[in-house]
């Protein structure tokens, strides 16, 4: 495979507090190749948004410590100066934010907001810029762009605002789009529209997309590879089909078994994950999921497992679990059928 377009290598994001550093992202590796759509899933507080915001250095510089590397086009974005990172933002790597209400400026017309990035990054005449803005509004499916371009955000509905936010992100033809929970604030029929739009745009414009979501259904339909994050770490990664068919890490099992599925028998009782995620001020020494894991053994709290291919799975599938690794004291979950366990527990 060719070199990745974007690579996080041993990335740490820490927020110092009086009680010590919050290790929001604690040494993660992640790659994104040209043109692919990759998912990053996990629950609130697992570090997925902190990691993605770090890529564009959107955290306040004074209160954030970074370590590791974010490689884009051969350069380490963590070493870039302010001017350097501004050249990247919007032009090379763009971000689509979650809440279309708060990510738009209420006192600027949407045309001006879409044109803002173009004005900063590309030398275009005023007329050419307006032409490009109208193209973008058409591209994201806003009806009658000629009249809508001079409207303000409050004159748009939620779904239309999210289309505007997408148009802003795409204004300078970025090579990478970071999409942070972009449909979470939308109703399900609007979500279907926006995901359909994003799918069509990715195919047409060929940008690479890193899609952050807590919704396994969204990730299943949109991505070709997935990373699962827990407690600041990547705990599992694989091709999307492989991950949903042969998940190896009990945390991933937990996510899949607790999510309602329209196509599973409705009598099936959902299986919640007991307990709470770890405190990122003082993460546990062993596996970060061990305290909530029904399959944990003493080795799990003693030593943290590395990311390794689970026994019998393809090498591109990696999981951080002693139970699925064929090592001394490990391997007790090899061949374990995670779905049948769900069925047993569902019985009264």
């Amino acid at each position: 495979m060719s070199d990745p377009l974007l690579a996080l290598a041993g990335l740490h994001v820490r927020f110092p507090t009086r009680r010590g550093d919050v290790r929001a992202v604690d040494g993660i590796d992640l790659t994104l190749h040209a043109g692919e759509t990759v998912g990053l899933v996990g629950e609130s507080g697992c570090g997925k948004s902190a990691a993605v915001r770090a890529i564009l250095r959107l955290h306040p510089e004074r209160t954030t410590r970074y370590a590791g590397a974010i490689r884009f086009d051969g350069a380490n974005l963590l070493d870039a100066d302010e001017a350097g990172i501004r050249r990247i933002r919007g032009q090379e790597i763009a971000m689509i934010f979650q809440d279309p209400m708060t990510s738009l400026n209420p006192v600027m017309t949407i045309g001006d907001q879409i044109g803002e990035g173009l004005a900063a990054h590309e030398k275009l005449s005023r007329a050419d810029r307006r032409k490009r803005v109208l193209e973008l509004l058409t591209l994201v499916g806003i009806p009658s762009p000629q009249t809508r371009v001079d409207a303000f955000p409050h004159q748009f509905s939620g779904g239309m605002r999210q289309r505007v936010v997408i148009a802003i992100a795409l204004a300078c033809n970025p090579r990478v789009v970071l999409a942070d929970e972009i449909t979470t604030a939308l109703d399900v029929t609007l979500q279907a529209q926006i995901l359909e739009l994003l799918r069509a745009l990715s195919a047409r414009l060929g940008m690479a997309t890193l899609m952050i979501s807590h919704d396994l259904g969204v990730v299943a339909g949109m991505t070709s590879r997935v990373y699962v994050m827990y407690g600041g770490r990547i705990v599992e990664t694989a091709a999307t089909d492989e991950l949903f068919e042969h998940p190896a890490m009990p945390y991933t099992w937990g996510l899949l078994r607790s999510a309602p599925n329209l196509e599973k028998p409705d009598a099936l009782r959902l299986t919640p994950i007991p307990g709470l995620p770890p405190d990122l001020l003082a993460p546990p020494a062993g596996c970060r999921f061990a305290a909530r894991c029904p399959f944990a053994r003493p080795i799990c709290t003693a030593r943290e497992p590395g990311l390794a291919a689970p026994a019998g799975r393809p090498p591109a599938h990696l999981a951080r679990c002693w139970g699925t690794q064929d090592v001394a004291d490990g391997g007790w979950l090899i061949g374990h059928d995670w779905q049948s366990a769900a069925a047993e527990e569902a019985a009264p």
Binding site: T189, A192, L216, G217, V218, A220, G221
Partner: peptide, 11 residues
């Protein structure tokens, strides 16, 4: 039909 299903092949 709009509700996503956590199953890539079905999606």
């Amino acid at each position: 039909s709009a509700v996503p299903v956590p199953d890539p092949k079905r999606e």
